[in-house]
């Protein structure tokens, strides 16, 4: 077991034939991901990386039975791609692209929700179920199979956290990079519940950052619904107010969205909160022994 994706998941790639799409699709296929085709308008009928290319997501879904789409299209076309996937009956869109306008994502997410499609991202490393399926841009080799679920707003902190967990002798069931934009698809709450329900996952690592209140909502949710141990790190304790720290959503506005407030809320919910990401591995060992 795992969450959302496994070795049987059929994946298509939107923006399949572009530079990034090609490079990362190849890496995913090497990892073992079952990529069954891709979509690039006006290139339908061609073959790319040994897989069929379609003009539309609908055609791709009809021909391949794909349920998940990995999205690599340029920022200006992200919303269109997400809505097309939702319209074609895709169940999960994993949006890697960075720099999609917030307004576009606002509409795209509303439509996806209406159509019952889940979204991960945008601006995220993707999702990986260790040794089974990688849909995204993370280095697959650091994710060893195991029993820790990981949810993170940050790409490299996902790698850092997973690496430490594996170095401590544990492994990862599924890791999800949710992205740090102001509007994102799946968030901590939904993913925490999935990990709670996954028999393979025994502990959860949650990595957040300054800005917004998703971590605060997660803390409330954990208190009421999650019985598995949770380890958390919130990046940006030393970040100045009013400055955007790389991610579009990572900004403390006024006194809202600080790391301190999030860490306190999580601690109050019984979460093991670490002050430095260097402590994630050790903390996982602690809660699992």
């Amino acid at each position: 077991m795992s969450i959302l994706v496994n070795k049987d998941t059929k994946v298509i790639v939107q923006g399949f034939t572009g530079g990034e799409g090609t490079f990362h699709s190849e890496q995913c296929m090497e990892y073992g991901t079952n990529i069954v085709g891709g979509v690039t308008p006006n290139k339908g009928g061609q073959e790319h990386l040994g897989k069929p290319v379609f003009n539309t997501v609908k055609e791709a879904v009809d021909a391949t039975g794909a349920t998940v789409s990995m999205v690599f299209v340029p920022p200006a076309f992200v919303a269109d791609a997400v809505m097309e996937a939702a319209d074609a009956g895709i169940e999960l869109a994993v949006v890697i692209t960075e720099g999609a306008p917030v307004k576009d994502m606002m509409y795209a997410k509303m439509y996806a929700t209406k159509k019952g499609m889940k979204t991960i991202g945008p601006n995220c490393p993707g999702i990986i179920t260790a040794d089974e399926c990688k849909i995204g841009i993370m280095p697959g080799n650091i994710f060893k199979k195991g029993k820790v679920g990981l949810i993170s707003k940050s790409g490299t902190l996902t790698y850092e956290g997973a690496n430490q967990v594996c170095n401590e002798g544990f492994g990862i069931s599924t890791a999800v990079g949710i992205g740090g934009d102001p509007i994102i698809g799946l968030s901590y709450k939904q993913l925490l519940q999935m990990f709670q329900d996954d028999p393979e996952t025994e502990a959860i690592v949650m990595i957040g950052e300054i800005g917004g209140d998703l971590e605060i909502q997660a803390a409330k949710f954990i208190k009421e619904n999650i019985t598995k141990p949770v380890v958390a790190f919130i990046a940006g304790q030393t970040a100045p107010k009013g400055k955007r720290m790389g991610h579009a959503g990572a900004i403390v506005s006024g006194s809202a969205g600080t790391a301190k407030e999030k860490m306190e809320a999580l601690e109050a919910a019984g979460v093991k909160v670490v002050v430095s990401p260097a402590e994630i591995g050790k903390a996982v060992k602690e809660v699992l022994s």
């Binding site: 940050s154 850092e160 740090g180 990046a235 970040a239």
Partner: peptide
């Protein structure tokens, strides 16, 4: 960006 903040912390 996340690791950069984590490094500062």
């Amino acid at each position: 960006a996340g690791l950069a903040m984590g490094t500062m912390d």
